[in-house]
Amino acid sequence: MTRLFARKNRGFTLIELMIVVAIIGILAAIAIPNFIKFQARSKQGEAKANLKAWFTTERAFLQEKDRYEEDIKIIGYAPERGNRYAYYFGTNITTCEKRDVAGIDGTQTSAFCIEVDTAKFGTGAQKLPTPAKATTLTFAGGGADPKGPGISGVCPGCNIDAYAAGNIDNETTGFDSWYISTKDATAAAKCGNADEKVAVAGTPWLSYNDVDCDS
């Protein structure tokens, strides 16, 4: 009876513990990278939503004024704070909406780009990361071909496009880059988007996928 009682209360052997630890290690090696990628992909929703909202605002402005406008202060475009991405709407990248302190400067009358919100993500975040543009963009349809970002041609036969770029995986090898235009284009992405070859007008298009390209 004493022997049986002693055997029932013995602990795990070292080999059993090593097997459990090895299994946990294997599961972690599989799960953690997938979780990081899933987390990064969820952050991409910001760029898609903000670029789509900008496109809608530009279309409304076109209906009213018969032209597009690069200056977001004129069209009344103001995305929410806390943005991980920088946004480019024209060739002027010296006149940007700064987001490095609490509140937005209400006296600023012009802005052609929006900086990353370093007030939230810290001064170490790059304010204006350079977007990785598509290797080729072959446009189809009427009006001038966008040269990006900004207005191309003379309205009403003009078009306008914009870019977004942000660091969403904490690496500095490349920046997650998005493109949107008022004109359709067939495109060749630099990385991570080989299955989506058409940048449809009004639809945000991923030209460099920071989740897959340099992770």
Rank of each mutant, 00 (worst) to 15 (best):
133 K>A: 13
70 E>C: 04
181 S>H: 06
44 Q>H: 05
137 L>W: 11
214 D>V: 02
189 A>Q: 06
43 K>S: 02
180 I>V: 13
42 S>W: 05
16 E>Q: 10
51 L>A: 03
64 E>V: 15
49 A>W: 02
212 D>Y: 12
11 G>H: 09
95 T>N: 02
57 T>W: 04
114 I>R: 04
149 P>E: 02
23 I>C: 01
38 F>Y: 15
197 K>Q: 13
101 V>K: 14
24 I>W: 02
82 G>A: 08
56 T>E: 09
122 G>E: 12
106 G>I: 07
6 A>C: 07
17 L>S: 06
44 Q>I: 09
107 T>F: 09
35 F>Q: 06
146 P>T: 00
142 G>R: 14
181 S>M: 08
182 T>P: 02
55 F>V: 11
41 R>H: 04
153 G>R: 10
184 D>L: 05
138 T>R: 06
114 I>Q: 07
31 A>H: 05
84 R>T: 01
172 T>F: 11
200 V>F: 13
82 G>F: 08
155 C>M: 09
199 A>I: 04
72 I>F: 14
189 A>E: 10
189 A>I: 05
33 P>I: 08
78 A>D: 04
177 S>T: 03
48 K>Y: 04
18 M>A: 14
163 Y>W: 15
137 L>I: 13
103 G>T: 07
115 E>Y: 02
148 G>P: 01
115 E>H: 03
211 V>P: 01
135 T>A: 11
74 I>G: 01
142 G>T: 14
43 K>W: 05
183 K>E: 09
31 A>P: 03
56 T>C: 02
108 Q>F: 00
143 G>R: 03
69 E>I: 00
181 S>A: 15
188 A>Y: 00
187 A>W: 04
137 L>Q: 08
207 S>Y: 01
93 I>L: 14
8 K>F: 10
124 G>C: 11
187 A>Q: 10
88 Y>D: 08
11 G>A: 12
194 A>C: 05
71 D>A: 13
152 S>E: 06
123 T>V: 13
52 K>R: 13
8 K>M: 14
85 Y>C: 10
50 N>D: 10
190 K>L: 15
136 T>G: 03
128 L>C: 15
137 L>T: 13
15 I>G: 05
211 V>N: 02
152 S>Y: 08
95 T>D: 05
92 N>D: 15
171 E>R: 14
88 Y>M: 07
170 N>F: 14
124 G>P: 11
151 I>Q: 02
207 S>R: 07
199 A>T: 09
25 G>Q: 11
167 N>S: 12
21 V>W: 00
202 G>T: 09
212 D>N: 14
55 F>W: 12
41 R>N: 14
124 G>Y: 10
18 M>K: 01
58 E>V: 01
13 T>N: 05
39 Q>R: 13
110 S>A: 13
53 A>T: 04
178 W>T: 04
29 A>M: 11
126 Q>N: 10
198 V>W: 04
156 P>N: 01
100 D>T: 12
209 N>L: 09
84 R>E: 04
136 T>H: 02
202 G>F: 08
107 T>N: 10
7 R>V: 07
